[in-house]
Design a protein around this nucleic acid. Sequence first.
DNA 1: GGGGGCTATGGGGGG
DNA 2: CATAGCCCCC
Length: 760
Amino acid sequence: MSNAVGYSYLSTLNDVQRNAVTTIHGPVMVIAGPGSGKTRVLTFRIAHLLNSGAHPGQVLALTFTNKAAREMKERIEKVAGNDANKVWAGTFHSLFARILRAEAHRIGYPNDFTIYDSDDTKSVLGDIIKSMNLDKKVYAPGQVRARISAAKSNLITPKAYAANDDLMALDRMDRRPLIYQIYEKYVAKCLRAGAMDFDDLLLQMYKLLYQNPDNVREKYQRQFKYVLVDEFQDTNYLQYQIIKILTKYQGSEENICIVGDDAQSIYSFRGATIENILQFEHDYPTVQTFKLEQNYRSTSFIVEAANEVITNNKKQIQKKIFTEKGDGMKIKLIKAMTDTEEGKRVADTIIEQKNRFNLSNKDFAILYRTNGQSRIFEEQLRRYNIAYRIYGGLSFYSRKEIKDLVSYLRLVVNDKDDEALKRVINYPKRGIGNSTIDQIAQMADDNEVSMWEVLSRIEFNSRAAKSVGEFVGIIKAAKAKAMLSNAYDAAVYIAKASGILSELKSDTSLEGQGRIENLNSLLDGIKEFVEDDEIAEGETTMDKSLAAFLQTISLMTDQDNDAEDQDTVTLMSIHAAKGLEFKSVFVVGLEENLFPSYQSLITQDQVDEERRLFYVAITRAEEHLTLTYANSRYQFGNMRFNDPSRFIEEIGDKNYDPLTIMSNKASSEIKSNPFGEPKLLGNFKTKALNQPLPTVDPATFVANKPEEIKVGQKVLHLKFGLGEVKHIDQSMIATILFEQLADRPEKRIVLNYTKLQIVE
DNA sequence: GGGGGCTATGGGGGG
DNA sequence: CATAGCCCCC
C-alpha cells in the first residue's frame, strides 16, 4: 500500500479530514458538522482508495439524493479522472434498482419490473380498500401507505404485522384494524404486477441478499470491498441492515465509512432513525471516529446562530462548530404584512444585495418549508426580471401528459403493470368507460392475473368490445416495435399510435401547446438517453431499451436536466437544499404552523426535527442570511394569521442586525391577529379568522324545491350563509351573492344539486 | 354504459 | 388549488 503523504490532494485537508481520508482499513465514522468539508472527505477518500489500489468497481458510495450523487461523481472525476464513472456512486434507490434489474428474477420478479411511485401505490391501495368495502375516509390511502412503508422499512412482513401487538393496538385505536390485511393484499398485488414501490427497492434488495439465491450475496459482498454512506443519520433500519449484510460477515475487512451529523437528521418521516449511529458503534466495535468541527462555509454570526438554535434540542452528540472566516454580516430579519409582501421584500433585497455586494443570481437561494410557498416568490422574481429556477415540487415527470405517455411505455415494457393500463386504456378517449374497466379489474382479481391478460384473452360482448380490441392491437404492435428498436424510436411510435400526439395537437390553447412542448422534451430526453454513450460499471452492453429508460426516470424527482451553469436564483425546499451552499440565503415563511409545521406540533420529537431542519436551512448560508415571515398568508385557500416562528427567538439577539430587529421583531410582539381570537392550532379545517364561517343551524334549515328559487330572493345556504339570488340561467344555474364571503362572494350554484332555503 | 361538468375534499418533506 | 366522486344527460 502506498504512503498517503505523497498525494498532493491530501495537503489541502486539515488534520482530522486527512485522517478520515487515509484511514481506509476497518470501520470509520465521521461526524461532520455543516460546511466542515464532508463531501471533500468523501470524494478524497474515494480518490485515495483508488490511488491505494482499489478497483473503482469495488467502491460503493451511497447517498440520499440524486443531486448529492451527481455532485459526488463530478468531484471524484476531478480528483480521480475517468475512473470516476466506474465507481458505484448513487442513491440507495437507484443503485439497488440497478442491481435488481440484473437479479430480480431470482426472487420472483421480472428483471424489467416496474417502479410504482407514490401515486401508483395510493391508487393500488385505494382499489384494495374499495374492494374490501372499507371507508376511504377512515382508511385514507396516503396514511395506509405510510403505515405500510414504515412496516417495510422496519422489515415487518404482513404476517409479522398481524402478530405485532403494538402495531395492531395502534391500528385499532385509529379505527383501522384491517391495515394488516390491506398490507398483505398490497404486497401480493405488487408482486403480481411485477412492480416494486420505493420501499421495495430496498426491501427486495435485502431479500435478495438475505435469501441468497445462487450465492448472490457473496457475489456482492466480494464486489463491494469499500462501502461509503453519506448522510448516515438519514438511513432507516432496513437500509442499515443492507449495509450490514454487505460489510459485516465472516472474513470481512469491514471497510465501511459512514458520514453523518445527528444535528442534520431531517428524514424521520420516512423511517430514518438516529439509533443507527448509536448502533453502529456497537456493531463495529473497532470503529475509528473523526469529528469535523471546523466550518469552512459560513461567517461567524451565522455559525453562532446555528449553534444557539441547536442547543434547544436536548438529544445530540456533543460538538462545537467553529469558523475562522471572521464575523461577517449579521442576520437580517424581515417582517411582512402579507405573503405577497414577503415575496416582494425578498426580491427587493436580492436586487439590493446584488448591487451592494456584487453578487449574481446564482449566489442566492430562497428556502422554504413547503413547495407550495414557491409560487409567490416566482411571481415577484418574474416582476423584477430576475432569473430563477425551482427545484422539486411538481416535477416534470408528474405532469399529466408525461405520465400518460410514460404509462404507455410502462405497459409496453411490463404488461402486468395494471396501474399503467388503467391510466391509458381510455386515454385518448376510445369508449372504454369505468364499468368496463371495473369489470376487467374484477376478472383479473378473481383469476389472479393481470388486467392485460384478461384483455388479450377474453372476448368482450359489450359495447366496448371493439374499442378494447383496438387498444389491445395498439399495445401489441408497440410491444413488437419496442423489441426491434431503441427506446426513442419505440416511444415516438407509441406517441403516434396511441393517439396521444393527435389528441394533444387538437388542443390549440396555450396550455395545450405547453403540453405538446413537454411531451416533446420527454421524447428529447429519451433521445439523449439513447445517444449517451457512457457505459456503467458492471454492464457489458449498452442497454438502450425502454425498460432501462423507464427505470432511470422513475427515480428522478427534481428537474435533473441541464441548466446547472445558468445564472439563476435557486428556489427549493429546505429538504432539497441539504448539502448545498449559497452566498446569500433567505429562509422564508418563519411562522408557527408553517415552520414548525402544524403537523409537527404534536410531539416534542417532531418539533426537534423541525428545529434540525431550521439548523440545516441557516447553515446553507456563506455570508448573508435573511429570515422572513409574514403576518398573514393564504393557506389552503384562506387568509391565515400565524405568530412568528419560535425559531426566530432561538437565534439570540446578538446575531441579528439590530436595525432589522427594531423594525421587525419588536413590532411583532404586538399580536398579529387583529381579531384577538384564539390562534389557529394546526387544524386546517378551521376557517380564516377574518372570514368566519356563516352559521346556519342545520336543525331549523328547511330546503325549498329548486324550481321555487327566483331571482331577487334572499336565500340561506348551509355552508355559505345568507345570499341574494342575482341570476338564474336556462340550465338552472343560479348566480348568488353571499354577503358573508369576503374574498369571492359570488358563487354559481346548480340549483338541482344544492339545498337552499328561501328567507324572503 | 360513457362523457361532461359541478361540488366536495384534503392539504409535508423525498426516492 | 388539484383530484375524486357524484349526478345528469346522451
